[in-house]
Write a protein that binds this DNA or RNA. Structure first.
Lengths: 195, 195
DNA sequence: AAATAATATTGACCTACATCAACGGATTTC
DNA sequence: GAAATCCGTTGATGTAGGTCAATATTATTT
């Protein structure tokens, strides 16, 4: 079996128990896509056709607001899923860019195939349900952090929680993810070094 | 059928199609609870045993941070679900208070019953999956708003989107929900009137 | 290896929003 | 219906973090 497929298998069987055959069936609804650094798989105004599981490389999803500022919404390295979530689940035009930060390989499932999978085997439905529940919980923690922590605390927390991300994404994208400007993040970093 | 049960039925059948019998089965796993104004159904350090669907009244979920400041995380009036999401799905001690803002009636499902429902009928699993997906999408929109809008824009947006909430919850809870202090919200409101 | 583009740092200044402290009105409680 | 509690407003002042503008630094392309 391919390296990347094995990652998806491990990912799924951590959440639900599957026979080898069932996983093969699941996998057959996915296709492998190679994305070069700086290429986009989702762009504003186009309906996102897929949800992508990163098996190699790094991607990020960001929006550009009315003032032209970029805000990173999501990062994804190996074993993470990425898409424009709102646009994907409601099948409406994207507002985000989803871009490869490095040469990247993803396993993609189309919206139609995902729907088929959910019907085909209740276990698959369960898998997507568990993913969605955990995503909600995750997003809620993010909202809470933003409400209760200072910029510096949010940055510390990011470093603690995603040490492997820090060196793979530009600092300005991390800054916007935690909700500060690049310049201020730069200053905070200097402050830390000074201590 | 009770008034409250009918609300739950409408809520579910908007999302999945169910025979009357199936709904009765679903409902049989719920119990009705009456909560007096200012009473709590979830408190920090206790594992939340239930997820609650409001059929009458209003509740809200909030945390108190290390500085003693209250941050409202969620509101719920008729037809909304409420719980401490992280604590409920991972069955760990709550960090939130969930309090009745008015005399309230809820339909509650216990964690164990919810698990049973998900196994009993794939349609029920689908229902919870759809709920979770939409919650994720909703929470992501909230993160994006916080990143891209000013305090005033967030308040305007809240008024637009939840006009029915505004008069049922104290202003300080709405302020903390959108991420400003009561005092600043008060000033913004004055500003609006001045225009 | 030079040229170009992308990213990060820095200093001077600014502002959206917070904090402190006091008060007034409205609800709730007994 | 008096007392207590809760809730919203207001003025004065403070600060975390933003903006503007310039310059370093680091990758990428040729």
């Amino acid at each position: 079996m391919q390296q990347g497929n094995a990652l998806l298998k491990t990912h799924i069987t951590k959440r639900i128990s599957l026979e080898d055959k069932e996983f093969e069936h699941f996998l057959s609804f996915f296709s492998t896509k190679i994305v070069k650094k700086r290429q986009y798989i989702i762009q504003p105004d186009f309906i996102p056709g897929h949800r992508s599981f990163v098996t190699k490389g790094a991607m990020r999803a960001y929006i550009i607001d009315d003032s032209g500022n970029e805000h990173n919404i999501q990062f994804a390295i190996e074993n993470w899923w990425i898409t424009d979530y709102n646009a994907y689940i409601y099948q409406k035009p994207a507002t985000m860019f989803v871009m490869a930060q490095e040469d990247t390989t993803v396993l993609q499932v189309s919206y139609e195939n995902e729907m088929k999978l959910k019907v085909l085997n209740p276990k698959f439905e369960t898998f997507f349900r568990i993913m969605a529940e955990r995503s909600t919980a995750y997003m809620q923690r993010r909202v809470i952090e933003r409400l209760t922590l200072s910029a510096e605390e949010r940055y510390e927390h990011f470093l603690d929680k995603y040490p492997s991300m820090v060196n793979r994404f530009p600092q300005y994208s991390i800054a916007s993810y935690i909700g500060v400007t690049t310049k201020f993040l730069s200053r905070m970093r200097k402050g830390r070094l000074g201590k």
